[in-house]
Computed example of a mutant assay.
Amino acid sequence: MREHTLADLRRVAESFWPVGTAESWDRVGLVTGRDDAPLRRVLLAVDAVRATVDEALDWEADVLLTHHPLLLRGVHTVAEDTAKGALLASLIRGDCALLAAHTNADAPEGGVSDVLAERLGLVDAEPLEPGSDPSAGIGRVGELGESLTLRAFAERIAAVLPGTVSGVRVAGDPARTISRVALCGGAGDGFLGHPLVLGADVYVTSDLRHHPAQESAEQSLVSGGPALVDISHWAAESLWLQGAADRLATELPGVEFRVSSVRTDPWTFAV
């Protein structure tokens, strides 16, 4: 069997999550590494942070594949007295490449929102914002197999997601009946006014800010609208990792893929 290289991983990743389908503001693809480097071990994580970089290096991984790009926003130095510079230096010295699949991995079938919809039990789910492929796009909206109260639905979400300090926060009547669910993996308050979100019984996303959430809840009292469920950004997107690892392993036999054991939700405790 031919030994695989980083170029093979990039080729397969491109077939699953084409760089050209990423949002225009996104920064996906190879951050550091060389195509002819041998490919034996790949660690998948949501974030490139000190803990996941150290985990990759301790395991002697050849690639750290993350969902969130390390260099999403512009930097003007990679000096090692900066956090990102220190991480890049460690990866380069450890001969570990860094590859990111972000919004290009959010939209497709089997992507972040698709996996979240499946885990929550949605049927006939479709994108909130379809792309050129109507089965792909941002977010999902669909029906539960059976109606639940808002409290029971929130408990289902809590059972599906890995635990975090912030838990699952809910805005709405706990006894409200939930049948139609809209969701967006990652930060999705920009879709609070979307017609498919307004037509759902509940909207599930992350990083809901005070004013948009409050305005949505107040408006629902006047003209109807969804209950809100705010979940950990990291927890929601972590569900995608194992499926991605399994798909990559099928296409690259002989390469070992592992999902990081590190929880990179930034909050460590609550008082």
Rank of each mutant, 00 (worst) to 15 (best):
P127K: 05
G139V: 03
S113M: 09
G139H: 01
G145S: 12
G111C: 05
E118Q: 13
A117H: 02
L122Y: 00
A136V: 01
G139W: 01
G137K: 00
E118C: 08
V115S: 07
L116T: 02
E146V: 14
G111D: 09
V123H: 08
D133R: 14
S132V: 13
V123T: 15
G145Q: 13
E146F: 15
S135W: 00
L120C: 07
G137L: 11
V115A: 09
L128R: 06
A136T: 04
A117S: 08
G121Y: 05
G142N: 06
G111H: 02
S147Q: 15
A125H: 06
E126N: 12
D124W: 03
I138V: 15
V112F: 06
D124L: 12
R140M: 06
P127E: 04
R140K: 08
I138A: 08
E126P: 03
D124S: 15
V141D: 09
V115R: 06
E126Y: 01
A125G: 05
L144I: 04
G145F: 00
E143S: 14
G142E: 10
L120S: 05
L144K: 03
L144G: 10
S135L: 14
V112H: 11
V141C: 10
G142Q: 06
P134S: 11
G142I: 00
E146N: 12
V141Y: 02
S132I: 14
I138H: 03
E126I: 09
A136N: 07
A136E: 14
A125N: 05
E146A: 15
S113F: 00
A125W: 00
R140T: 07
D114A: 13
G131V: 05
S135A: 14
S132R: 15
E129Q: 15
G137N: 02
I138C: 13
P134F: 01
A117R: 01
P130D: 09
P134Y: 00
L122Q: 11
S132H: 10
P127Q: 11
G111Q: 03
R119L: 11
E118D: 15
A117F: 00
L128S: 13
I138D: 02
G121I: 09
L116E: 01
G137M: 06
